[in-house]
């Protein structure tokens, strides 16, 4: 019973035996402390948010005015299709910084300090993923804010809109674990970015993000976009924010998110433990 309630600090104070395992509740609390660390870092160097602030603006402007006329006839109606798609794409892009940050922590020895503490080995990884929520919020805020200024309007009820962003966030959290894996696999922080592009690019461009109607694509690409979870996320967000049939896109997206976490999370923890 004592192992259920005893924590490290009280064990030190009372001289009692420290707990043998770290309970899930304490792991979550340690994860939140480490998420706070990421946010404190941003407070000292807000320039770290520059990429997630500027990227949505640049991509929105570029895609809107390059493709708008060709894909949808006019930019205004394309904006209504493009913006929800960009929420999906930018969420994926936002996870890329995570791998770099992780590789830096490992290189600088910060993670060895964490590994020498009586906390769960998963806590630093969970903390990094949760702390990066700030980047997701930034991407969505800038996209919606800037998009609204350009003429984007929600056409559904607030609950559906909230559901759309919640779905994007769930998928973002799942994909973060892929970034964690890349960060752990990369030989150093410099190589993470390049590796990340390798998987983010085909996933986000080979989807319905930029071109909602995929029927003009060659068959093999159509097959790819159909299974690509980013397509399902983009279509789900599109339907939930601008109207239209939601179909099974929400369930496909959630199933993909669950599948990604089930595969990458245990591998990431194992790799993190083995990393000497």
């Amino acid at each position: 019973m004592s192992t259920m309630t005893a924590d490290t600090a009280s064990a030190v104070r009372t001289g009692a035996e420290p707990p043998r395992r770290v309970s899930p509740r304490r792991t979550l609390s340690h994860g939140l402390t480490l998420a706070w660390r990421n946010i404190a870092q941003l407070k000292h160097s807000p320039e770290k948010l520059l990429d997630v602030t500027l990227m949505p603006i640049v991509f929105l402007l570029l895609f809107l005015y390059v493709f708008g006329g060709a894909v949808a006839g006019d930019t205004h109606s394309y904006l209504q299709k493009l913006l929800p798609g960009l929420v999906a794409q930018m969420a994926m892009f936002a996870t890329m910084g995570l791998g770099t940050a992780l590789a830096e922590d490992i290189q600088k020895g910060v993670f060895d300090r964490f590994r020498s503490l009586p906390i769960a080995r998963s806590a630093p990884l969970i903390g990094t993923v949760l702390g990066d929520t700030v980047r997701f919020l930034m991407v969505v805020t800038v996209l919606v804010g800037f998009g609204t200024a350009l003429g984007f309007r929600f056409h559904t009820d607030p609950l559906s809109v909230l559901g759309a962003f919640a779905l994007a966030y769930v998928f973002y959290l799942a994909v973060s674990w892929v970034s964690v894996l890349v960060g752990l696999l990369a030989p150093g922080p410099e190589t993470v970015q390049g590796l990340a592009f390798l998987w983010v690019m085909p996933l986000t461009f080979g989807s319905s993000v930029l071109v909602p109607d995929t029927s003009t694509m060659p068959g093999w690409l159509q097959a790819w976009t159909k299974v690509n979870p980013v397509t399902h996320l983009a279509d789900a967000v599109r339907a939930l924010t601008t109207g239209g049939p939601v179909g099974n896109h929400v369930w496909y997206t959630l199933a993909w998110a669950a599948g990604i976490v089930l595969v990458t999370f245990p591998i990431a923890i194992r790799m993190y433990n083995r990393r000497a």
Binding site: S45, K108, D112
Partner: peptide, 21 residues
């Protein structure tokens, strides 16, 4: 986990976070 509750580690590899105070 119990060993880690009893030890402190300082050195070339276990480091503090440079970005924080």
């Amino acid at each position: 986990v119990r060993v880690r509750a009893k030890i402190g580690l300082t050195g070339q590899y276990a480091s503090v976070d440079e970005e924080l105070t």
